Simulated scan of single mutants.
Amino acid sequence: MNFLAILKLTIPVMMGYIPLGMAFGLLLSKLLIPWYYAFFMSAFIFAGSGQFLVLTLFASQATILEIGIATFLLNLRHTFYGLSMISTFKHFSWKKHYLIFGLTDETFALLKTTEVPEGNRERAYLLITFLNQCYWIVGSVMGAMLGNILPFNYEGIEFSLTALFVVLSIELYKKNRLHKPFFVALIIGLFGMVLFPPQKMLILSLCAAAFVLIVFKRSMENGK
């Protein structure tokens, strides 16, 4: 798989990451934070929802401990992504450390849906992850710089991340022979919206889904 083919695969992520990154940069500029913070946060944190959360906590003058705990809970879902990629990454070279760092929701979906020959997998995965981070960095820096120059109403632009992940989830559903986990996650998510407090809905729903999928993993794989 050559570079152009990989670039083509990441275009849907680019279409979501650049406008969403710009929304992050605009919010950062609205809080009067220098534009270069957008670059460093996107380069060394690289967690879309986590970065939005950090800005919100900055604005409310939260402590470092509060920011750390909130960010950990928000990004705890990445643990489940990582567990499913252990067998794939374990034979990779030092590059696997960057792949682990860059495993966002959208990158995980791409890695799972992209069919790559085993011998070329490490390079392809590295390029996919790197390109996705570049899109996010470009978008966030553009937004931060434009926010200092132009007045801009960015209400609703943050929904682009949700829309992007829905599209990638549909592609993952089409290419995966096991459909039961998708329905389990959907049902638990819907019940979670009703039963759990809004602030804790995501983490509690993820824990419940993980428990069900782990306990009933074998029966789902066997189609029972």
Rank of each mutant, 00 (worst) to 15 (best):
N2F: 06
L4G: 14
A5Y: 08
A5I: 12
I6P: 00
I6Q: 06
K8N: 10
L9I: 14
P12D: 08
M14F: 10
M14Q: 10
M15N: 10
G16A: 04
I18S: 05
I18M: 11
I18C: 05
L20F: 15
G21F: 05
A23M: 08
L26K: 07
L27P: 03
L27I: 14
K30N: 10
L32T: 11
P34A: 07
W35A: 04
Y36H: 15
F40E: 12
M41I: 12
F44T: 15
F44R: 15
F46H: 05
G48Q: 09
Q51Y: 14
L53H: 14
L53E: 08
V54H: 09
L55I: 14
L55H: 05
L57R: 06
F58R: 08
F58V: 07
S60Q: 12
A62W: 06
T63P: 10
I64L: 11
L65Q: 08
A70L: 02
L73S: 08
N75D: 13
N75S: 15
N75C: 14
L76V: 12
L76C: 14
H78A: 04
T79K: 03
G82R: 01
G82F: 03
M85D: 07
M85T: 12
F89A: 02
K90V: 07
H91G: 10
F92Y: 12
F92R: 11
W94M: 15
K95M: 15
H97Q: 07
Y98Q: 09
F101K: 01
L103M: 13
T104S: 09
D105H: 00
A109K: 00
L111M: 10
L111A: 08
K112I: 02
K112G: 13
T114S: 08
E115P: 02
V116E: 03
V116F: 06
E122H: 15
R123T: 07
L126Q: 12
F130W: 10
C134H: 13
I137G: 04
G139L: 05
V141F: 08
M142N: 14
A144I: 09
M145F: 07
L146R: 15
G147I: 03
I149V: 14
L150K: 13
F152N: 09
F152K: 10
F152R: 08
F152A: 11
E155W: 07
I157E: 11
E158F: 10
F159C: 11
F159A: 13
L161N: 11
L161T: 06
L164A: 06
L164D: 06
L164P: 05
V166E: 01
V167W: 07
V167I: 15
L168D: 09
S169I: 05
L172I: 04
Y173V: 01
N176Y: 02
H179V: 03
P181V: 02
P181M: 02
V184Q: 00
V184Y: 01
A185E: 01
A185R: 00
L186F: 00
I187E: 00
I188Q: 00
G189N: 00
L190R: 01
L190G: 00
F191R: 00
V194N: 13
Q199C: 09
K200L: 14
L202Q: 02
I203M: 06
L204P: 02
L204C: 01
L204W: 01
S205P: 04
L206W: 00
L206V: 09
A208R: 00
A210H: 03
F211H: 15
F211N: 14
V212S: 01
V212A: 03
V215F: 09
R218F: 07
N222F: 10
